[in-house]
Computed example of a mutant assay.
Amino acid sequence: MIEVNAFKNDLLTWFHENQRQMPWRETKDPYYIWLSEVMLQQTQVNTVRPYYNAFIERFPTIQALSESQEDDVLKYWEGLGYYSRVRNFHEAVKEVHHNYNGAVPSQPDEFIKLKGVGPYTNAAVMSIVHNHPLPAVDGNVLRVWSRLNNNHSDIALQSTKKTFEEELQPFVESESGDFNQAMMELGATMCTPKKPLCLMCPVQSHCQAFENGTVDQLPVKKKKVKKKTIDYLVLYITNRNGDILVRQRDTKLLNGMWEFPMFESDTSIHTIEDELDAVIDMQTEPIFTTKHIFTHMTWNMKVIRAYTQKSDVEYPYRWMSKNEKEALSFSTSMSKIFNKINEV
C-alpha cells in the first residue's frame, strides 16, 4: 500500500511548483469553482477556458444566472455539448438563490442535494472551497490510482470506484482540495491515457505499475457497446423572403435546442410534407454530407436544400432570418451546417 505522507509530499510539492494556470484556480468563489467543474465534465481544459470566461462575464453572480432565461443560458453553452449539465446547473443555482439566500451550501450533505450535483462534483467543490475531506474520483484519478497500485479491476464498475474512494480517504484528511487537484493534474499532464511521461513523473517511485512494467495495460475498462448509427436528411428550407425553417427539439437529447428539420433517411416526401403541413420543393442531391458523433451514437446527415411557399407555421417550428440565428441556441452540428451553407 502507498505510504500516505511520503506520497502526498512528493505529489503536492510537484503540484505547487508546476500546476497550470487556470482562471478557476484564482478564486475561492464556490459559484465559479462549481461552474468550472460542471464545464470540465467530459470536456478538455483548453476548450473550457473561453466558455468559462464568457459565462462568468455574462452571469457574474448566482442572482444573475438565476434570473436569466434558459435560452440565454444555453446560448453561452452552445458548442460545449451535454446540455443537461447546464440545465441542471441553472436549476440548482435558482434553488441556491431562492432557498439559500444566494449562498452556495458549504456542507457536503446540503450541496449534494442540489440538482445535478453528484458525488464527484460534491467532493471536488467542497474540498477545493472548504477543504472537506472528500476524495474526488474522476476518470483521471481512476487511471492514476489503478497504475499506482497496479490494480487490474474494471474501472467502469461502480464497485471499483467505491473501493478507490475508500483507499484515497486517508490522503484527503488534510489539504484535500490541493490533493484532489494534484491527482487530476497528474492524470491530465503526466499519467495520460497514452504515452504517459513515466520518466518525468514526480511519484514514479511510488508506482507499482511502473515497477512491474504494466503501465500500458492499465487502467482496465470494459469495452464500450458499439455506437448506434442513424442516417438523417437535414432540410435547409427557405421561403420567398429568404427565411429559414427551424424547429425546437423536445427530446432528451439536445432538449430545447433549435435545429433544421431532420428526418430519418428512409422517410418519404409525403410523410415529410404531412409533418410540415406544407408542399416542399426538395432537391434530389444533397448540398453536402456531414456527421456528428455523440458518446452513444453517430448521426450521418445529408443536407438537402428545399423551398416552400408556406409562410405560417406553428410551434415547435418557426421561420428564422439569417440575422436571428445568433439569438437562438443551436447544437454544434446545426451551427456547422448553417455556417457551411452560408460560408460564415
Score class of each variant (00 low, 15 high):
6 A>C: 03
6 A>Q: 14
8 K>F: 06
11 L>S: 09
12 L>E: 02
15 F>A: 06
23 P>C: 00
24 W>E: 02
29 D>E: 11
34 W>V: 09
36 S>A: 13
36 S>R: 01
39 M>C: 04
41 Q>I: 09
42 Q>H: 13
50 P>G: 02
50 P>Q: 00
51 Y>G: 13
53 N>T: 06
54 A>S: 08
55 F>P: 09
58 R>K: 15
58 R>G: 06
61 T>Y: 04
67 E>A: 04
75 K>Y: 05
78 E>C: 07
81 G>Q: 06
81 G>L: 01
82 Y>Q: 08
86 V>Q: 12
88 N>G: 10
92 A>G: 15
96 V>F: 04
98 H>F: 12
98 H>V: 06
101 N>W: 00
113 K>V: 06
114 L>W: 12
114 L>G: 11
114 L>E: 09
117 V>S: 07
118 G>S: 11
118 G>V: 05
120 Y>P: 01
122 N>Y: 02
126 M>Y: 01
134 L>D: 05
140 N>A: 13
141 V>D: 13
141 V>H: 10
141 V>W: 14
144 V>A: 06
145 W>R: 04
145 W>S: 15
148 L>S: 12
151 N>A: 12
151 N>C: 13
152 H>I: 00
154 D>R: 10
154 D>K: 03
156 A>V: 03
159 S>M: 03
160 T>R: 02
160 T>Y: 13
161 K>W: 03
166 E>C: 00
168 L>D: 14
169 Q>A: 07
172 V>D: 14
173 E>M: 10
174 S>I: 06
174 S>M: 07
175 E>N: 15
179 F>W: 09
179 F>T: 10
180 N>D: 10
183 M>K: 01
186 L>Q: 10
197 L>C: 02
198 C>E: 05
201 C>Y: 12
202 P>R: 02
203 V>W: 09
205 S>F: 00
206 H>P: 13
207 C>I: 01
209 A>E: 05
209 A>D: 04
209 A>S: 15
215 V>P: 08
217 Q>N: 12
219 P>N: 15
225 V>K: 15
226 K>A: 15
226 K>R: 14
227 K>T: 11
230 I>Q: 05
231 D>C: 08
235 L>Q: 07
236 Y>C: 11
238 T>R: 06
238 T>P: 00
241 N>Q: 13
248 Q>H: 04
251 T>M: 02
251 T>L: 03
252 K>D: 14
253 L>T: 14
254 L>P: 00
254 L>Q: 15
254 L>K: 07
254 L>F: 09
255 N>W: 03
258 W>A: 06
263 F>P: 05
275 E>H: 15
275 E>Y: 12
280 I>A: 08
282 M>Q: 13
283 Q>G: 12
287 I>R: 14
287 I>G: 04
288 F>W: 08
291 K>P: 00
292 H>M: 13
293 I>D: 06
295 T>Y: 02
295 T>V: 00
307 Y>H: 14
308 T>L: 11
308 T>I: 05
311 S>I: 08
311 S>K: 13
313 V>Q: 07
314 E>Y: 10
314 E>P: 01
314 E>A: 07
315 Y>D: 08
316 P>D: 10
317 Y>H: 13
326 E>R: 12
335 S>W: 08
338 F>G: 05
340 K>S: 06
341 I>D: 04
